[in-house]
Design a binder for these strands. Structure first.
Lengths: 252, 252
DNA sequence: CGGGAAGTTGACGGGTCTCAATGGCCGTGG
DNA sequence: CCACGGCCATTGAGACCCGTCAACTTCCCG
């Protein structure tokens, strides 16, 4: 079956041939589990760069898995101050926290064009009942995202501006690489300095100056919307970032 | 059955008569679910104020539910800078993220004397298989904790020192109240200014001065280790904190 | 060629940090 | 009973990191 545009929705990438599943970093699933996911997945949704995937204060009815593209999760204060909570990569699962409240506590915005697998929120419980192993996987994904937010909170609370930026670049690079977005000239980096500022609790101006200073050290290079790491060890030392030796991650 | 001291462990509060379950904020469970939890819970552990419940970099083998008392979750950098990620109240579940790595990415330290229900980590999967509904609950608890960390990240990243402190006091108060720790003279507040500083990404000195300034506004009062809210509306406005209308929370 | 978004730069002010010192409270031990 | 030490709260002075304001440039795209 091919793909067909229809009201901003595309039907359909088959789960059994999901391009993400061919990657090492994702754990394998049983055939019946994949078939169940396939039945749960009614449609595929696309989003263009800059589009609001989930609106803050909206009432969400759907769960998503990022199939391709990048996004970020954020919250804003009424006067416009915005905090990016974490970036979303292919394989990330979105929408669980919204289910605990009537309105979504955060927004999700696309950084690039995206494809998302759409799951009806009200059938989440079916998944747990029919395939406890998949419920287990969803818990894993949730806990993993919290781990990342923890790390960001440590950065914003206790690292200096220079350390924060080193941390962000390094973390972004590693995550992008782990989902096969790496290449000889680095990874795609569709992120403005405003995004960096909002993710790190810094002002735009100070982000610019600090980023410039970091580039002067020659540890990395950002050009043509791509990020390349020159001195991985130096960045790790500066950011005091020790990548956790993660086990294979599940994929829903 | 009474309680008996034995190597720092107490045996045993029966789950079917768990004092937390009598509270409105916790959802009810089926009898067989509670019996299953009871079988999973091998022992009860106590911790004195200041004790390390989970050691950073340790290799955890157990999961905990806070039965009574308070604690906090934190991470530190090698030079000693510490970030408190969130506070733990009765009913909170601890230890999931540790399972994804070989060493615990964060520490947990008791703020007061505590009692904890201990579950063997390796039997978590049994729980999902035997009672998917409980697996669902664990996901809920994990997502809920992430929601709180999100909120803290927004505070630390984008709120001013005064707003952050207002936020912390308010949030702490509401959470304490929701688990029945409230009283006519406020809630127990076993937290030093150093804790507040570490939770909000501030220095101790600045925390002290800002807290003093906030107290001058008369919105709250801290005395004798207790926190009382004078002007709830004023604090909410200052912190721009809108308590999420949560549904009943599960309890494992 | 025009316009908007993103990046860059300088000046300046202020929020926050660090250093340093003091006082209160409390448990311990002489 | 009092001296002492340790933890916590408090306060002042000065420095610095970072935010704000305000340009200007570059780049892209129509």
């Amino acid at each position: 079956m091919g793909t067909r545009e229809e009201l901003g929705r595309v039907v359909m990438t088959a789960c059994c041939t999901c391009p993400l599943r061919t990657q090492d970093s994702f754990a394998a699933n049983q055939v019946d589990e994949i078939e169940f996911i396939q039945r749960l997945k009614k449609v595929e949704r696309t989003a263009v760069a800059g589009e609001a995937v989930i609106r803050e204060k909206g009432s969400p009815r759907e769960l998503y898995t990022v199939l391709s593209g990048l996004a970020f999760r954020f919250r804003t204060l009424s006067d416009g101050r915005r905090q990016i909570l974490n970036f979303l990569f292919p394989g990330d699962f979105v929408g669980l926290q919204e289910r605990m409240t009537n309105e979504s506590p955060h927004g999700v915005e696309a950084l690039t064009d995206m494809r998302l697998c759409v799951f009806p929120s009200e059938r989440l419980w079916d998944l747990y009942r029919a395939h406890p192993s998949l419920g287990y996987d969803i818990t894993w994904l949730t806990a993993h995202e919290e781990l990342i937010v923890d790390e960001n909170l440590l950065s914003v609370g206790r690292r200096s501006a220079l350390e924060r930026i080193a941390m962000l670049l390094l973390h972004f690079y590693k995550r992008a690489e782990s989902v096969g977005m790496g290449g000889p000239d680095g990874v795609l980096f569709p992120i403005t300095q405003q995004h960096i500022a909002d993710a790190l609790g810094l002002s735009l101006v100070h982000t610019n100056k600090t980023l410039k200073r970091l580039q002067g050290l020659g540890l990395h290079e950002i050009a043509n919307g791509r990020l390349r790491i020159g001195d991985l060890h130096g960045l790790q030392h500066l950011a005091e970032y020790h990548a956790l030796p993660l086990r294979e991650r599940p994929l829903i």
